[in-house]
Design a protein around this nucleic acid. Structure first.
Lengths: 152, 152
DNA sequence: AAAAATTTGTTGCATATGTAACGATGGACT
DNA sequence: AGTCCATCGTTACATATGCAACAAATTTTT
């Protein structure tokens, strides 16, 4: 077959799901990253770590890794930075001294609550711009992909 | 208000769209990355660059940046690596010698076609696992987000 | 109880990435 | 032509990331 006839081989990236998902996710995340960058100069791993501790209240580094799918060194470094900002405190587990329990300080809670507000506003804007039907489709498809990824 | 009452401030990450989109996109991409890593030891920027040149046939580095949203240094380095593998050739534009036109070599075409096949199979598997209704919802919502991002 | 294996979190090192500066070229304006 | 500015792609440098090795603690095996 003529090598230049790529009709059988071409892969329009606009129709490739991995590509489109990544573009969409990256743009949305970058847009939201502006918020925590400009307010607090935070990185993405730091924001995710803060948000995870904020949500669970008391959590270990390992649990953050499991919940967020971030690499343990990324989490370890984010925890270090958040600790330096005095946004979290560590408590060594008395039954297993390898384990550290992490909690937000008052300052950390404050930043978390402010950014949670920003996040909800951001999400509302997206949903508003998408409209009810598309929002519903997005929920449906994300749930489907999540089920595919993490079959409980 | 009691600081520990975070009912107003909590942001369940399982309901935050930026977070969910990223998790989904990252998992799907990582799964597909196994394919081009094991076959060719390629990185993600290299695969994306190959796929973009493959799709357009003749393209410049700048156009790859615009189409893929990759940073120009990432594209520059991917082009360099693909060139070293003899998967692409550069041709300096005779009207504007700053510009280089990129095309795949025969070897590059071969790799591109093979990986395109793998990609389509991968996509078919995802769509098969999602089912028609969820696939349709995914298409709809991705289009909606894309419109939101790139309003023409 | 001693030895071996596992787990939690950190760190050294190599790689990957982005920013800013750059060289080369081209275009605009005088 | 000469000066200034913009553009294309590369590179130097600083930062971010992941892998592998690690220390410390715990559990399992013998």
């Amino acid at each position: 077959m003529d090598q230049n006839n790529i009709s059988e081989a071409v892969l329009p990236l606009e129709k490739f799901i991995a590509y489109r998902l990544n573009q969409a996710a990256e743009k949305v995340s970058q847009r939201f990253a502006l918020e925590y960058k400009k307010r607090y100069g935070m990185t993405r791993p730091e924001w995710r770590t803060l948000a995870t501790i904020g949500q669970f209240g008391n959590i270990t580094a390992k649990e953050i890794c499991q919940h967020s799918s971030m690499h343990k060194t990324k989490v370890s470094r984010a925890i270090f930075t958040l600790e330096q900002r005095r946004w979290l405190k560590r408590t060594v587990d008395q039954n297993d001294r390898r384990v550290e329990h992490l909690e937000l300080t008052t300052q950390g809670q404050k930043a978390y609550m402010e950014l949670s507000d920003v996040a909800r506003t951001f999400q509302d804007q997206i949903y508003g711009a998408l409209g009810a039907a598309n929002t519903s489709a997005l929920e449906t498809s994300l749930e489907a992909i999540e089920t595919l990824i993490d079959p409980q």
